[in-house]
Amino acid sequence: MMSGCTEVIKKELLDRAELYQTGSEDSNYLEQLFKLKLLPDFIIDGLNFMPPLNNIRYLKPPSSLLEEPLSTLVKKNHLSSLFEIAYQPHKPGILWEKISQLPHEIRLLLAAHCQTPTVILQGLLYDIEAQIRTIAAQSLIKTPEGTGYLIGYYAKTAPPVISAIILLHPQTSPSILAAMTEQVKCVHCWLVKYAIAQHPNTPISVLKTLAVDSHPQVQDAAKIQLQGYSKSSVISA
């Protein structure tokens, strides 16, 4: 069920997105999302994105290093203990803390290497250096679950308007939409709530909450979704 993003909302998002289009290296979320192919078409067309968006270049490690098996690099750089933790479930906090203590060159190498485990790439998304965060995202998007994880990452860490834009992505999961509904209570951005309300993957329980939201457009989008579910139930019966 999907009420869809109306032309009025698209214009609102476009107008606000323009503020970020010429952002700094560290804050230009739109450029990152464009390169990761996570932006909706109306944003790309409306802002006339043409690659490259700016002259920022992220230097990766030498090809000779990236072509070496990861196991070889692990031995050379004494990373065995780190990778032991990486393969242990339920210890991402400990792992990411250890990653943050690695030298720049090693973190950069891990971010760019095609064999780096997903959980390490996820940790590198929170690196203190924009270069490493960006390269880690580019590597992560190539993994089976990368798109879904990055949608959640950007939705939770980007400014509200960018969160609203990324939440329009069709692969946004019900769990992310539900989590963002809780987070947005502290942000008070109706566009984020609207993006959640119009999404076909939003759980019914969340839609019921948004159907009584204080913002009329959020209410309307949620009610349209709920009506669609009701009609489907009648047809199925």
Rank of each mutant, 00 (worst) to 15 (best):
A237V: 07
P200I: 01
Q219T: 08
E7N: 11
T116S: 00
Q88W: 06
A137H: 03
A112P: 09
L73S: 04
L19Q: 12
Q131N: 15
T181G: 06
K60A: 11
L36C: 08
D41S: 10
D26R: 15
V218L: 10
I196W: 00
L53H: 07
Y58Q: 06
A112C: 14
C189P: 01
N77A: 05
K35I: 12
L33N: 02
I135D: 00
R16S: 04
D45E: 13
V234L: 14
E31V: 09
S100V: 01
G4N: 06
L226T: 06
Y29K: 02
T22N: 09
F34E: 03
D220H: 13
L47E: 03
L108M: 14
G148W: 00
D213P: 08
I176R: 00
Y153Q: 09
I135A: 04
F49C: 11
I151V: 12
L47S: 09
E67N: 15
L13G: 01
S173V: 00
A136K: 01
L13Y: 01
I94E: 11
S230M: 15
L59I: 12
A222N: 07
K60M: 13
L191E: 13
I85Q: 08
A222T: 02
A237H: 14
P216N: 10
L82P: 11
P62Y: 07
Q32M: 12
T181R: 01
N201I: 02
Q131K: 14
Y194I: 05
P40L: 10
I132F: 03
S63V: 12
I44K: 10
H104Y: 14
C186F: 15
A112R: 04
L168W: 05
A137T: 08
K156Y: 04
L102A: 05
L30F: 06
S173I: 03
E105D: 13
I166K: 05
Y229Q: 15
Y153C: 01
D220A: 15
D26T: 14
P69R: 08
K91E: 05
I204A: 14
V212K: 14
